[in-house]
Design a protein around this nucleic acid. Structure first.
Length: 269
DNA sequence: CAGGCAGCCTGTCGGC
DNA sequence: TGCCGACAGGCTGCCT
């Protein structure tokens, strides 16, 4: 579910409540997530939080003894709440903080993860990730160089974490619309100009969504419990048969793999 | 090796 | 009203 803007929104929301506070302990109500919650997280005690960072769609809590790696999966969200608030059905894990608050993890589908590592370097979930989309390393040149021999459709390829991280199913469709590129185009067919335009629109769409607090379709909540507001600005995602906001042509929908894709057949070539 | 897709889970929605 | 299948923001791992 959450793509980069939702994860970054969560990071910004929780950071001021965690950094400078101490984790007293964790309450794990259901540790059966994508992988079992690490033993070290069950055993946490009196660990100050040094920083809250993000790499791709992973949130990283830096503690003196190591790092908590959090992934929100498809339906996860994190909220800062008063410690006494009773948990509900899918509230699987709390970090109980020294400042009277808790960081509560909610995830109906349990595709998320809470892992522990002493060092980030070389950890299996982080080791093979491509560049951050908002970094200078991710550019039209990078896209073009990587695309030359790629015989995959551009849309599913944008979601390949080895190419660039953080672009999921919503923002792949939205970025291609903004760049005027048809999602079925083979990656190898893109010109260097198109790659530059696409890299630029990916950055712009992600930045705008972060400004709006991400996209809430059903589950996602910002850490204060509010939804993200970028859903109102979606151009094509989830808008099958509705008029294109630019030209009025009904929005098309299809599949790449098992994932829905949306596009405007007039604006995207 | 690249590409495609099943599977992990629960909830919701639409059609019959 | 109820049942059943399809689908949902991600990612790994197995198969061709």
């Amino acid at each position: 579910m959450p793509e980069l803007p939702e994860v970054e929104t969560s990071r910004r929301g929780i950071e001021p409540h965690l950094v400078g506070a101490t984790i007293l302990h964790a309450v794990v109500r259901n540790g059966r997530l994508r992988w079992p919650v690490s033993d070290e997280i069950h055993a946490l005690s009196d660990q100050p939080v040094l920083s809250v960072r993000r790499r791709a769609k992973y949130l990283l809590l830096e503690l003196p003894a190591g790092w908590i790696i959090i992934h929100l999966g498809m339906s996860g969200s994190l909220r800062i709440l008063p410690a006494e608030l009773p948990p509900q059905k899918h509230d699987h894990l709390d970090l109980v903080m020294s400042n009277g608050k808790i960081l509560r993890y909610t995830d109906p589908r349990r595709f998320g993860a809470w892992l522990w590592t002493k060092a980030l370097e070389g950890h299996s979930v982080l080791a093979h990730l491509g560049p951050e989309p908002l970094s200078d390393e991710f550019s039209g040149t990078w896209l073009y160089e990587k695309s030359k021999r790629k015989k995959t459709a551009i849309k599913p390829w944008l979601m390949d974490n080895k190419l660039v991280v953080g672009v999921g199913n919503i923002y792949a469709s939205e970025s291609l619309f903004a760049a005027g590129i048809h999602p079925d185009r083979l990656a190898s067919s893109l010109s260097v100009e198109e790659c530059c335009r696409l890299a630029q629109t990916i950055k712009a769409v992600l930045l705008r969504s972060i400004e709006q607090g991400g996209t809430t379709l059903r589950d996602f909540l910002q850490s204060d419990g509010k939804p993200g507001y970028f859903a109102q600005e979606l151009q094509v995602y989830g808008r099958e048969k509705e008029p294109c906001r630019v030209c009025g042509t009904p929005v098309s929908a299809g599949k790449h793999g098992q994932r829905s894709t949306y596009w405007c057949r007039h604006c995207q070539r």
